[in-house]
């Protein structure tokens, strides 16, 4: 039985926030709908009112402000891929967006939707985590800003209140001296949900790695940085041996955070291999 609901399409942010305040839990927000449509079809969407925010002009932008890039939540994956500010200032996010679904999905699915749906397999999330993205949540009469990692409670659960809307995502540009990698492991190239994905950013100072940031998707209960491995790499002159050690540390940290599960047997070597490849790429170590 399909979900039944009324539908409203607010034309301004003010109007959208008013509606969300009035309806609270009785409303659900829809943007691209690529995730929500399957819920609707299966009758799992329980809301009186579906609030379609895609005509809210304040939520659709890509801006460069000084050293920062900010995105409206309605930015589609296709728009990220074809955006110069993103490909220049945050290529790791561009590559992550490019790995999402297929052309048809990227044309519709939004970055805001990818964030709030909180799927552990979301492709843009590890990229936003290594970028240190901040997410602005607005409600009628107020707003708060959270680091992206503070948004998540558990798979598919966030701290976002029914009255709140993601209105902006910001991060520092990482162009000068930074290199990045995003690698996705999936059953096939297109139309595949990530079995695992890795985002890595590194800044070199001479021959030394000044800073390395690593995040692995689909492997921890909530998105996070792999701090032990990052600490191992920081300040070193990268070598095959250190990369090997750091990759093992990531696999270890994943098991510590997630516990030993039925999938650990194959995930441990997989995460190790992916991180190794990503680190080799950003630190320019060939093996």
């Amino acid at each position: 039985m399909r979900s039944e609901f009324s539908y409203i399409c607010p034309k301004s942010l003010k109007e959208a926030l008013e509606i969300l305040t009035d309806y609270g839990k009785r409303a659900r927000v829809i943007a691209g709908g690529t995730d929500l449509m399957t819920e609707i079809r299966e009758g799992k969407l329980e809301a009186e009112l579906l609030v379609d925010i895609t005509r809210v002009p304040e939520l659709r932008f890509i801006r460069e402000e000084g050293n920062q890039t900010s995105l409206g939540p309605l930015t589609t994956h296709a728009e990220l891929v074809s955006s110069m500010p993103i490909m220049r200032g945050a290529p790791v996010l561009g590559r992550a967006a490019h790995s999402v679904g297929s052309v048809q999905i990227r044309n519709i699915g939004t970055i805001g939707g990818n964030i709030v749906n909180a799927s552990p397999a979301a492709d843009t999330t590890p990229a936003l985590v290594v970028l240190g993205a901040q997410v602005v949540l607005e409600r009628r009469g107020g707003e708060r800003t959270l680091p992206i990692t503070d948004l998540y409670l558990a798979p598919y659960r966030t701290v976002i209140k029914p009255q709140e809307l993601v209105t902006k995502i910001t991060f520092d540009k990482v162009s000068n001296g930074w290199s990045s990698s995003f690698i996705k492991l999936a059953r096939r190239k297109a139309l595949a949900i990530a079995r695992m994905n890795v985002a890595v950013l590194a800044k070199m100072e001479g021959k030394r790695a000044k800073e390395v940031r690593i995040s692995v998707g689909s492997s921890t209960p909530t998105p996070c940085r792999m701090e032990k491995a990052e600490a191992l790499l920081k300040g070193t002159v990268p070598s095959a041996a250190i990369i090997e050690e750091a990759s093992q540390a990531v696999a270890q940290e994943m098991v510590e955070r997630s516990g030993v599960r039925s999938s650990t047997g194959y995930k441990r070597p997989a995460v190790q291999g992916l991180v190794k490849r990503a680190l080799q790429e950003v630190l320019a170590i060939n093996q």
């Binding site: 539908y7 829809i30 709908g33 690529t34 929500l36 449509m37 399957t38 609707i40 079809r41 579906l50 379609d52 296709a78 679904g101 297929s102 052309v103 048809q104 999905i105 044309n107 519709i108 139309l191």
Partner: peptide, 22 residues
């Protein structure tokens, strides 16, 4: 469920899955 592409149409000139559009 947006995986096969048989329902692809152009919406404002861009290919989309008609089964995933409300």
């Amino acid at each position: 469920i947006g995986e096969c592409g048989a329902c692809t149409v152009l919406l404002d000139g861009k290919p989309v899955y008609a089964c995933l559009i409300l």
